[in-house]
Each structure stands twice: as C-alpha cells, then as structure tokens.
C-alpha cells in the first residue's frame, strides 16, 4: 500500500529530483558536544529543505547513521512526514558498510525514478566521520576498500557527487580513497556545514540536471578551498 502511495507521489511531481544520502558517524567518539551539534545541524538542514517550495519537492533525502550498527534513520520520500529522532552516539565506526548501504539505496532510488518516468540529477552522497572505520583494512572483509572501489568509479564516471567531511580528530587517510570532494570540518561547525549543504542543494535544484553548478563558498565551515 505504502509503496503504491509512494509511487503516486513520485509520478505526480514533475520536478526533477536530486537524491541525497547522508551517512553520519554516530560512534562512541562522537559523544558529547559533537553529537549535540550534529543533531542541531541535521535539524536545521531538514527545516531549510522543507521551507523552500522548490527544494521540498526536488531534494530527496535519506539519512544513514553508523555507530552500534548501520541504521537507516530517514528513507527517501519521507522527508515531509517523518519526525527525526535525536541521534545518539555509541559503538564502533562501520563506515564501509554504511557507504555500501548508501550506494545500494541510491541505486534503488534511481530505479524507482526510472520506473516512474522521473528525471533526476546525479545522486549526492555525504559522509561525515571522526575516526578510522572499524570495518576497514584491519578486518578480514575490508568493507571500506570495497566501498571505495565503487565510489571512486562512480565519481570518475560522473555518476555520483561525493562529499567526505572529516570531523576532528579524524584523518583523511580512508576518506581520500573514496574520491570526490574532501574537507575537514572546523571544530563543531555542523550547523554551518548543513546550512551550506542546504544552500548547495538549493543551487542544484534551481539549476538543470546534467549541468555543472557552482556551489557556494564553503569557507564558513572549513579552511580549505574547493
């Protein structure tokens, strides 16, 4: 039933969609100030998206957290209806698994668009983490490597816009292998980051699919220049 309703909503909306999956680190090391600021940032982001009548119907957002396990906290198509729970920190950093899950979700979403004759922009994937993955090269199955092979190819083929954000005290070592854009977050400027992200989504929604677009200057939350 819900699937049919979902398809109906997909079909009736003429706007091209931009699927955006945000993968957030909620491991134990995020406890305290960081997880609080992250919660504020995510809320601000969703509010900003919903507030604008164009982005509300063109930004298609999903959120995954990775801590105790990989969890889908917001699915595509639900942004208007869902009340997002506060994110809590704890557990490891299964980032590789999270990115793989995100890619699978984005791929499924694209299939749904195609089935419903919906046009779309290339998907966006945002990964934010403050530490080394616990499902990476130390493990028997290196999910980070597996994910990186996929993402770097997608980025190279221009089928994915990937933004990797390093939260202090994380390093760029693993995130670099994903390809795409990489930047360290200044302190806990989550709100600034998500403000920038909503502006970027807005820029893309106002542009046309398949084109280049000029993202706003990220200097409010990072020291590097893109």
């Amino acid at each position: 039933m819900s699937l049919i309703l979902e398809d109906r909503e997909l079909a009736i909306n003429p706007n091209p969609r931009v699927p955006i999956c945000i993968a957030l680190d909620t491991s134990a090391s995020m406890t305290g100030n960081k997880i609080d600021e992250l919660n504020k940032g995510v809320k601000l982001f969703l509010d900003a998206i919903l507030e604008d009548e164009v982005t509300r119907f063109s930004a298609d957002i999903a959120i995954i957290t990775f801590g105790r396990h990989v969890e889908k906290v917001l699915d595509f198509g639900d942004v208007e209806n869902i009340k997002l729970h506060q994110l809590t920190a704890g557990g490891g950093t299964p980032m590789g698994g999270a990115v793989l899950e995100a890619l699978r979700m984005l791929e499924d979403r694209k299939k749904q668009y195609k089935k419903n004759g919906v046009t779309y922009w290339q998907p966006w994937l945002i990964v934010m983490t403050d530490g080394m993955a616990t499902d990476g090269s130390m493990q028997l199955v290196d999910k980070v490597k597996e994910a990186a092979i996929k993402t770097s190819k997608l980025v190279k083929d221009k089928k994915l816009n990937l933004f990797s954000i390093i939260i202090e005290p994380g390093t760029s070592e693993e995130l670099e292998t994903f390809g795409g854009k990489l930047a360290p977050l200044d302190g806990v400027k989550f709100e600034e980051f998500f403000q920038w992200l909503s502006q970027s989504v807005s820029v893309v929604s106002e542009s046309t699919p398949g084109t280049g677009f000029k993202l706003p200057d990220p200097q409010s939350w990072t020291s590097i220049e893109w």
Binding site: P14, N15, P16, K110, K114, K115, N116, G117, V118, T119, Y120, W121, Q122, T208, P209, G210
Partner: peptide, 22 residues
C-alpha cells in the same frame, strides 16, 4: 510543452534517466 504539461519535461519517460541523455 512544459507549460501545457504542468512542468513535465517532454523526454521524461519510463526507463529514461538524466534529462540530457534523454
């Protein structure tokens, strides 16, 4: 076309993809 078709692009089709490819 898009005015008469309420915003739908002429090449939005099932199994289509990016607008420019279409």
């Amino acid at each position: 076309f898009m005015i008469l078709m309420c915003g739908k692009h002429p090449y939005s089709s099932v199994d289509g993809g990016m607008v420019t490819d279409n």
